[in-house]
Structures are given as C-alpha cells and as structure tokens.
Amino acid sequence: MENTTAVGKPRVNQKKLQIFLLDHVIEIFLAVLIIYLTIRMDSFMTWSNWMNILRSNSLKGVIALGMTMVIIAGMIDLSIGSTVALAGVIVARSCRDFTAGGMDLNTACVIGILISFAVAILIGWLHGTFQHRMGMPAFIVTLVTLNALYGLAGIVSGGYPIANQFPQWFNQLGMGRVGGQNGVPIPAIVLIISFLVILFIMNYTTTGRSVYAVGGNPESARLSGINVGKTKIIAFVAVQIFAVISGFMNSGQVMAGSFSFGRGWELDVISAVVIGGSSMSGGIGTVWGTLIGIIFMGVITNGMTLLNFDIYTQYVVRGIIMFLAVLISSYRAKVKA
C-alpha cells in the first residue's frame, strides 16, 4: 500500500503541473516573447511602443471580448467586420444628410450612433432567433449577414467612402489620448472598460453562467430551466454592440465611413479568442484568456514589424501560432479527460 501511494502521489502532482502549464501556456509564451523582444531591441519595451500596440489592437480586441461570449455559448459570429463598416457609414451618412436638412452636427452624429446601436441589437437578435428557432448553423446565418451587411454598407454609403462629415470630437474616439500627447489612447481605455464589463458579466452574473451552461450542453441547460434562446440572443447582441463601438473608433481614426472597413476582421478576432483558450465547441473559455490572446497577437505582430519581417512571413507566423494554440487546447482536453 505504502509503495503505491509513494509512487502514486508524484504522478498526481505531475499531472496537476502538466495541466497548470497547459492552462497557462499562452501567458508563459507571452512572457518569454516579451523578455526576448526586450533584450533584442531597445525600442520594444518603451511606453510609446506599448501604447502603440494597445491602440492598434484595441479595435479588434473590443470585438474579441464580445466574441468570447458568443464562442463560449457554442456559437460563432462571422459578420462583425461588416458591422464595423456599417456602423461607420451610418454615422457618416447621418452627419452628412441630417445636417443638410438643417440639423445641428452633434445631434446628427448622436442620432447616427443611436441608429447604429439599434441596428446592432436587431442583427444580434436575428442571429440568435434564426439560429435557435430554426436550428440553422450560426456559421451560415452569420455568413449570410457578413455578405448582406457588407452590401448594405455599400448601399448606405452609395458605394463611395463618406469622408470629413464627422464632428471633431468623433476623431477623438479613434485618435484621442488621455493624459496628453503620450497618454493612453482612448481605444485602449475602451478596451479595458469592455474587458471589465465582460469579465463581470461572464463571472459574476446569472447571464454569464447561463452562457457557459448553454455552450457546455444546450440540452442539459434547457432541461435545467435555463432560457437557451434568450442566452444566445444576449451573446449575439453583445458582440454586435462591441462591433459597432469598434466601428465608431475605426471611422473616427480616419474621419471617414466606408463599406470596405472591417473586411476580414472576423478571422483575427476569432484567432484572439481561440488563442486565449476558448473552445470552439463551447462551454469553455475565459475573458482573461481572450485579453491575453489580444495582447499576444499584438506583441507578436509588433515584434515582427520591429524585426523587419515582411508582411507575408508575418501571416505565416500568425498561422503557425493559431495552429499551435488549437493543438495545445486539444491536447489539454485530452490530458484532463
């Protein structure tokens, strides 16, 4: 008996250690990467570089936080890039057309913002309803809206970018900084606030627990008296709202709305969530993991740029990282079982 415990104990600890390492592999990898880049280049570990990383990754990062809810609910939303474009052109067109009718520019802009949010809620509701009620795969439903909303953004904008219609403060959404010229970019602050909001929802509310339950096993959740349809709709609406906010910041940065904005963003957004450890089959994932995933993607891109990797090599490297992340999470599921 004593022999078996003597042999058995370390094995248990070893497995625990293995699981701990697998759970935090991205954090560890990120730390190693940061240390390497810091030693390798003086320009990396500087305030301005970090603020740069934050600013350029916050726009997709904000959406990735919303996407975390959708993916943990066992769903997916491919349409967010089109929503980014649509939000920009709606506000741009509101600013242009309503002021042409004699309205104050700020009011016109705010009306555009409100319309965008209403559209976001409607789209999210449609996604959730069609997926849940009709049993259509989320992949297909949102692939449809990816195309339809892209077209809609083109229609709203008349096929051309709408530039220089926004009030000056709209520019601040994308380009502004808090604390002077070297301060924290506003998109980074939006990212942090969004992170805290989603973190709270997912970990401290009944909504968050329902999202986990629905993603983990929709049938068990339903038979436990959890409103599965409502939960999915909340997740779909959340990601759309974050896409709209991101769209405002994006259009604010360039002071224009265009239907071509946001093209292909869905893949980067989903990558960040998956690298952060969320499972595409639902029920598993953390908001913290997604934040790490966003920073990881940002640091690696920044590092490769500083090291003068060409853009094509960067794509290959990012592909490999995505592959490794999924490989690790599949392996982790095996080890735990």
């Binding site: 970990n203 401290y204 509310t205 009944t206 909504t207 968050g208 627990r209 329902s210 986990y212 339950a213 983990g216 096993n217 068990s220 959740a221 436990s224 008296g225 959890i226 029920g283 598993i284």
Partner: peptide, 25 residues
C-alpha cells in the same frame, strides 16, 4: 449534466436564480 463543467456548477444550474442576488452571482 454538463460533463465538462464542475460538480459545483452542475449542482447549481437549476437554482441559478436562487444563488444570485438578482442578476449578480
């Protein structure tokens, strides 16, 4: 059951609203 979730979570899915103060867990 939701097999991948913890025992504690699985014991409290039906009583989700009872273990929360309103919306907050």
């Amino acid at each position: 059951l939701i097999l991948i979730h913890s025992i504690s979570d699985n014991l409290c899915y039906a009583s989700l609203n009872l273990t929360a103060n309103g919306w907050v867990e």
